[in-house]
């Protein structure tokens, strides 16, 4: 026979439950709180920055030289470096990631898939600093053997390595999207006399397109936010260029540079990293929201 609790014990039990619930809530809320705090600080410090530098100047000036005697605060060179390295990364990760996803989802046997996917995902476990010196010390010298006059620091090499780095995201998420396509559609296509390749490209991929696009958006968001590789391999000179062979700084690389202590605390140059950070946040946020929206739409389809 289980002994019954006394009224006092019962009261204590109730109280304990309530306290534990509160603790659990606080743990869950902390990450939300920290996120909100980061955004608040970013906006706050950026506001101070924009009190000195008009937003129009920030968005249209073609020079970014906060460290110079004649400081200029145009985000365009940094934005351009970011876009350029992301574009190169996407040129690598797009085709490779998508091909890997199609192979894993449509052609690989179950044992091959089960052993390949974890290995692929291992790529995302490599520390980014390792990717960084890999770009600088392996990829760049290799590229220099056939790209004439390629400088030691360049966007191309950094972009290629970021591309390799985001392959797992693109491949894994695209594969999930394609595997979610009902087999009935594959059967319908095969029964019409389509080959497996035709079925993969003409039926499965179009059906999974929003999920695949979401995978790409998340990959882009990773590439935009990537810091270590570009800081190490792309050089840290803001440079408004569309040529990936040149060195250039990205938003993230600039923030690293300043965080390393090149600027006095509290000055406008110091505040500029918050403005740059806010720009970065808005970029990755919009890609994430876009990916989220696509995936939500994708789920409704089946």
């Amino acid at each position: 026979m289980a002994s019954r609790l006394t009224a006092t014990q019962r009261r204590w039990q109730r109280r304990r439950e309530r306290i534990m619930e509160g603790v659990l809530f606080l743990c869950a809320a902390s990450s939300v709180f920290v996120t909100i705090a980061i955004v608040v600080v970013l906006v706050w410090e950026s506001a101070a920055f924009f009190a000195h530098v008009p937003i129009a100047t920030f968005l249209t000036d073609t020079m970014w030289t906060p460290l110079f005697a004649d400081p200029r605060y145009g985000i365009l060179p940094l934005l351009c470096g970011t876009m350029l390295s992301t574009a190169v990364a996407l040129c690598v990760a797009g085709p490779l990631g998508l091909t890997a996803a199609i192979y894993l989802s449509e052609f690989a046997s179950a044992p091959v898939r089960e052993s390949t996917k974890p290995v692929l995902e291992l790529l995302s476990g490599v520390p980014t600093v390792v990717y960084g010196f890999f770009a600088l010390l392996v990829v760049t010298p290799f590229l220099q053997t056939f790209v004439p006059n390629l400088p030691g620091f360049n966007i191309l090499s950094a972009g290629i390595v970021i591309g390799i780095m985001i392959i797992p995201y693109v491949a894994s998420l695209s594969e999930d999207a394609m595997r979610a396509v009902p087999n009935a559609l594959r059967d319908g296509s095969l029964a019409l006399g389509a080959t497996r390749l035709e079925t993969a490209f003409k039926v499965v991929l179009p059906s999974a397109i929003s999920g695949v696009a979401a995978a790409f958006a998340l990959g882009i968001s990773r590439a935009v936010g990537e810091t270590m590789v570009v800081a190490i391999a792309a050089g840290q000179q803001p440079n408004l260029t569309f040529d990936p062979r040149e060195p250039a700084a990205t938003i993230t690389a600039y923030i690293v540079q300043v965080a390393l202590g090149d600027l006095p605390h509290g000055g406008i140059g110091y505040q500029s990293i918050f403005a740059a950070g806010l720009t970065l946040l808005l970029m990755t946020l919009s890609f994430n929201v876009f990916a989220f929206w696509l995936r939500a739409r994708f789920r409704e389809a089946y």
Binding site: A184, D187, A191, L192, V203, P206, A301
Partner: peptide, 13 residues
């Protein structure tokens, strides 16, 4: 040469 119609309608997207 041999068409097939399935249990559940499965039009492509």
């Amino acid at each position: 040469r041999i068409g097939m119609v399935f249990q559940k309608p499965n039009p492509f997207a």
